[in-house]
Each structure stands twice: as C-alpha cells, then as structure tokens.
Design a binder for these strands. Structure first.
Lengths: 294, 294
DNA sequence: CTATCGATATTTGTCGGAGTAATTAGGCCG
DNA sequence: CGGCCTAATTACTCCGACAAATATCGATAG
C-alpha cells in the first residue's frame, strides 16, 4: 500500500490550533534546533498501519481540516510562509508542499505580495476523497450528509441501470464476493463496511464510464462515513442484505429498470436510517458544539 | 483573478518530451548556471492573461498532460528527482512541488527507494477541473466525451428538478441574464460559451447541494469543451436557445418534473449533435492516431 | 537447497538559507 | 484629482546537504 500523498488519519489533531512539534528532526540540525523534550504534547502525525506519515501530508491534512471546519474562514489570509512554517515547526519546503496540495484541491490561492488566502467553499474540490475525509475528520455539517445522500440518490440508480447493461462477468464475480463478505462480517465491522464500499464501487465501475468511476471514491467515502455514523448510534435497524442482493440480481439478470428501482430503494432506505439517526443525535438542540473530545 | 495553482494553458508543450528550459534564472545563480542563449527553443511556460505562470504549475501541467495522454503509462516509474529535475531545467524543489500537485490529484504515488510511479487511471481524480483540462489539452479519448455526456444526462435533469424546488430569486436572475447574454453573443463566441456554462452552473448551484455544486466545475468543463468540439466542425445544426428557455421557464415556474424533462431534452440534443460531429470526424476509420498536429 | 536475516545502496523526504520576481501600497508629480 | 513611479512585502526559485525509508542483494543458518 503506497502512501498516496495524504497519509493521515490522525483523528482530530487537537483544538490547540494545529501545532505539529515533530520529534524526528530530519534534515540539517546543525547546531540550532534544540528540540526540547516536549514530546508528550505533540501527538505523532499519523498512526494508521504504523505509517509515520510524511510531514507535508500531515501539514496539508491539518490545514485542510482546519479550513473545512471553519477555523480559517474563506477570504482569510494565512500568515506568511516564514512565520507559519516556523510556528508549525516545519521547514518552509515542507510547508510549501503542503500549501501546494491544498492549492491543487482548490482550497487556497497564493500570490506574491498578498499571501495565501482561503478560497470560497464553492471552489473547493469536494469530490476529492481527501477533502471529503477532512470534512469527516470533525463533526461535519449535516447539510453535507444530506447532500451526499442526494448525490447517491441521483447517481447510483442510474449507474445501476447502466451496469445492468454493460457489466462483465468479472464485475458480477466481484459484486457477489463483496456481498458474501458483507454477509459474513456484518455491517458493524470494518471489513463489512469495506465490502459494502467495494460493492458500490464495482457497480460504478461496471458502467465503464470513467467520470462515474471517479465518483466512486467520493460516493464510497460517503457510504463508508454515513455507515459509520449510523453504526455509532449502536442501532442496527434493518438487515441491508436483501436490498443489496436485489440490486445484484437485477444487474446480473441484465435488467436496467429493475436495477434502477432496486438501487433507489436501497439508497432511500439508507437515507431514511441515517436521517433518523442524525435526528436522534440532535433532538431539537442544534448546538454545533461537539462535546465529544473531553 | 488569482493564480490558482495550475496557471498553464501552453497548448501542447511539444513532442520533444517536455523540456522547459526557462530563462528567468530565478534564485541563486552564484557562478554556475551558465544558461546559454538557447532561449528561442524553449517556449515561455504560460501566457494566458499575461500571467507568466509559476514553474511548479507549469511542470505539473506538462507532466499531467503527458500522463493523461499516455506518454507516461500507468505503473511506469518516473526518473528520480535529481535527474528529472535537471532534465526539465528546474530545481528539485519546484519539481517536487509539481509532483505534490499531481499526487494530490491521485495521478502519481511516491515512496522512498522505489521512486514516483504513475497510478492506475481509476485512481485519477477525473472530476478535478485541472485534470479534465489536461485531458482536453490534446485530442481526448472519445470515450471520455461519451462518459461526460452520460454524467450530464444523469446529473443535470435531477439537478434541474431540485433547482425548480429550491431556487432563490437571485438564481433566476442570474440564469435569465446568462441566457440573454447567450442570445446576444451566440454559442460560437467565447462569451457565449461562458454564458452557457454560467447557466448550467447556476442550475447546479440553485440546488443548494454542495457536492452537486462541486460537480459544476466538472460539468461546466464538459459543457465548454464539448461545445468547442461541436463548434470546431463549423456547423451550427440547431438553435439551442429554445431548449434553454424551456428549462428556465420550468425552473422559474417551480415545476420539478417539467424542469427534469426539459433538461433531459436539452442534454440529449447536445449529446446527439456532438456524437454526430465526432462520428463525422472519424467516418468509419477508428484510427486513434490524431492526424491533427502536422 | 531454501529461507530468514542483515548490510547496503538508492530514492524520496526534510531542512535552512540566499537571492529573484511579482504585485500591491503609497508617495510624488502633473 | 489622477496617473506614474518608487518601495516594501510576499511568494517563488534555487541550492546543497543530511535523514529516513525501503527494496535489493548477500550471508548465514536450518
């Protein structure tokens, strides 16, 4: 598994205004860089798979989360490179590479003399898997979840119909295996969620449509995160397997209309479940203050 | 207008295996860097708006175009940083920032000792406006155009229906102005195409759905490029305005079903026109070899 | 002969500093 | 009061060195 730029998981960098304070003082620590033993404060950047994470990816992740969470508002100008990189305890090169990542995702714009400013959210590349992950790194806006479900409701039924017409045997095999894995593990398991995502990805892939396949990562992220949301409430309101099998059968049988209807039902049921779970979470109190992290 | 990372236009860097050869030898040219007077050969990186273009953006653009055009195949390993940056006549820092941009768009993966390799196309962020622009920098795969239209056919009618329910007066105003501008300029003009794109963007924006709004840049690019494709054949087969006004009227009247139907008809007509134009371009000969650039 | 372990070499990653280009801001002059 | 020029700030580029990571190859034990 290669690193792929944004390694980070780093659930919730911390409220303390992103301070990296890394230990492994790579590079030229000729005689400056005292790096006192203040290690305990700064949690190590990433820890998934024991991947220590690259610094630029960590910085990009933290800045991205800070931006999508509103800590840096659109139009706001970040401190200049030297000050900010010093405050983050990283070199200017690493900081610049992080900014380059954010710029590539449309979240900041740089220009000499003016500095680097956060762009309007309309310019953010929300379909980018990393950006979506940054959104879900903190408690995301419920409107975003609604929007993702609306997108699924639009795209997935149509994709299922196309898949029913164009699927190759390999796709059917993968779908079947994914569903069987899903049955074996259950949706409350990480493996089960992966299998769920694989199934939906394969449906999109079976369309043979490259833009739709690119949407797979986005929709897959939506599937995954919303499933986690639902599961977090410790309620398993409904067995999702019959709906999934119905979609599979329709695609295998080559029935576009049946596949579309089945997928509509599947996504609609998931939408209803998630909406209910979210509504229960905030009964009437719309306080956005997340009381999670003690 | 801020730079926004990828400045480049630089239509077709040239067959000579992307060689930048810049003049403005920025940075420390202490006493090395002879930089002979070989200026004529190296076209200046970018020239849109008089924006000279940043080096990292130029390199990312050129590499991105080279990758999507198949010059660097998936799985292939790029030369190491030092060699490649020297060959491109840029510093290692600038090259690394360019690679970081490509990595952020999912097109390359880097790891120590192994190098930087081109990822599988399924991982590329095709919804990214820059990536899409890179595709259209050379003659793109007709399958991509088909895919984009299919995506439009899926998303835009549903978006029109949502827009009919949720549009604000400001949206209607913008749509009306865009259509009037479109009528005034005609679709063969650059301004007319911009107005067309604005109309479609506003429809998506009127849905109030953030992921759909992010798709606007993608679909807008598709609209724009496919329109150019069609116009390049010097045939104006049909007046697109009645279809557009029908969509607008339905959205203004608040009729979701009518808006959906009208938009379906609009996109379908555009699809038929473009398909016909493309088919005429390659009558029966499916040779992928683009005989354009002499 | 095979498999596991360790040294090695290669590549990306990180660092700090120095100098350049670009663009905004403000003063100056017409 | 407006246009032009100067100045200052900022990002951009370059450079050279060191550190970390890891795939490859060799050695050693079974």
């Amino acid at each position: 598994m290669w690193t792929r730029c944004i390694a980070g998981s780093m659930t919730r960098t911390g409220n303390q205004a992103l301070c990296i304070r890394r230990i492994r003082g790579g590079g030229a620590s000729r005689e400056k860089r005292k790096m006192g033993k203040t290690d305990g404060a700064g949690k190590r950047p990433s820890r998934r798979n024991g991947n220590p994470g690259r610094i630029h990816g960590t910085i990009a992740h933290d800045l991205g989360v800070a931006i999508v969470s509103g800590q840096y508002k659109p139009g706001e100008i970040l401190p200049n490179e030297i000050d900010f990189s010093e405050r983050l305890k990283v070199s200017r090169s690493a900081y610049r590479e992080a900014i380059r990542i954010l710029s590539a995702k449309g979240m900041v714009e740089s220009r000499p003399k003016t500095g680097t400013r956060v762009t309007e959210p309309g310019n953010w590349n929300l379909l980018d898997p990393d950006v979506l992950a940054w959104y879900f790194a903190t408690e995301p806006d419920p409107a975003l979840i609604d929007g993702l479900f609306e997108l699924r409701m639009i795209v997935e039924p149509a994709a299922a119909a196309l898949a029913a017409e164009r699927r190759k045997p390999a796709h059917l095999t993968r779908m079947r295996e994914a569903l069987m894995e899903m049955e074996r593990c259950g949706v409350d398991n990480e493996d089960g969620r992966d299998a769920d995502r694989t199934f939906h990805d394969t449906v999109l892939e079976a369309t043979g449509n490259m833009p739709l396949m690119s949407l797979a990562s986005t929709i897959g992220a939506g599937v995954r995160w919303t499933t986690i949301y639902k599961a977090r409430k410790d309620e398993l309101p409904r067995d999702p397997m019959p709906d999934h099998w119905k979609v599979f059968d329709a695609i295998a049988a080559g029935g576009p209309d049946e596949a579309r209807d089945a997928m509509t039902e599947l996504v609609g049921a998931a939408l209803r479940d998630t909406a209910r779970a979210l509504r229960r979470e905030t009964p009437d109190n719309s306080a956005p203050d997340t009381a999670a992290n003690g």
